[in-house]
Design a binder for these strands. Structure first.
Length: 227
DNA sequence: GCGACAG
DNA sequence: ATCTTGTCGC
């Protein structure tokens, strides 16, 4: 569904940490933040990655507006980059992109497990993949990486996430009681308000939005079968 | 130097 | 993320 062949692999496989950071600075300048017509969205995909030995197991679950499963695709890829806070994309994106290569139904937007622009250099994994594939993306993280915000007190309540200059880069959102809030930020071709709005619509009784929750479930199931 | 630090 | 059982609270 995506022309992976036309991608510059240099942007996914840096030779070292320094070049990885240079790549992020370069790509962050390409990120486009603008409102997204959520009412025109048909398919929404959720992505998650688990690990088994030296392999990354990625799963993409695509749902329609009714929350019905349209497609589930998985991929197994050898891990090449270590986990370094701020450089998550270089570890997980390769497996995610190979998985997207097998997807038949092209999603209108993809939700990632991690940050969008709420990142030290404005390029979390959602933004990185969004720019490479030129598709709308949103980052939904379970913990904070960058930015300042208050903690929502009531379920359904949100608080703005601001960068060092006071710019709005996302929202913390309490999706379920007795849990830590979600950290939502646009990845690419989306904006904070649209991202928050869409994620709210996808919460179905659990902390995580349905596409992400299901992708996590399948990635864990895969891991259990290949242990 | 000290604290923070997506998955 | 991963290693892991029961258990306290909403």
């Amino acid at each position: 569904m995506f022309d992976i062949d036309k991608l510059d692999l240099e942007l996914l496989f840096p030779k070292d940490v320094h070049s990885a950071i240079e790549i992020q600075r370069e790509l962050s300048g390409i990120v486009k933040i603008h409102p997204l017509q959520t009412e025109r969205i048909e398919y929404i995909s959720g992505v998650d990655v688990s690990y088994s030995g030296n392999f990354a197991l990625s799963v993409i679950v695509t749902l329609d507006t009714t929350m019905n499963i349209v497609e589930i695709v998985s991929e197994r890829v050898k891990v090449e980059f270590p986990y370094i806070s701020g450089l998550l994309a270089f570890r997980e994106a390769p497996a995610i992109i190979k998985c997207l290569e097998k997807v038949l139904v092209k999603p209108d937007i993809i939700i990632f497990d991690g940050q969008g622009i709420a990142h030290p250099r404005g390029l979390g994994i959602a933004s990185h993949v969004g720019v490479l594939l030129d598709i709308p993306t949103i980052g939904v993280a379970k913990s904070r990486l960058y930015g300042t915000c208050k903690k929502p007190k009531q379920v359904g309540e949100s608080e703005p996430i601001l960068d060092e200059k006071g710019n709005l880069i996302g929202y913390s959102y309490l999706s379920k009681k007795s849990t830590n809030p979600l950290y939502i930020s646009p990845g690419h071709l989306c904006d904070p308000a649209s991202a928050l709005s869409l994620v709210k619509q996808l919460i179905n009784g659990y902390k995580l939005p349905e596409p992400t929750r299901l992708a996590h479930l399948y990635t864990q199931k895969l891991k259990a079968e290949l242990d």
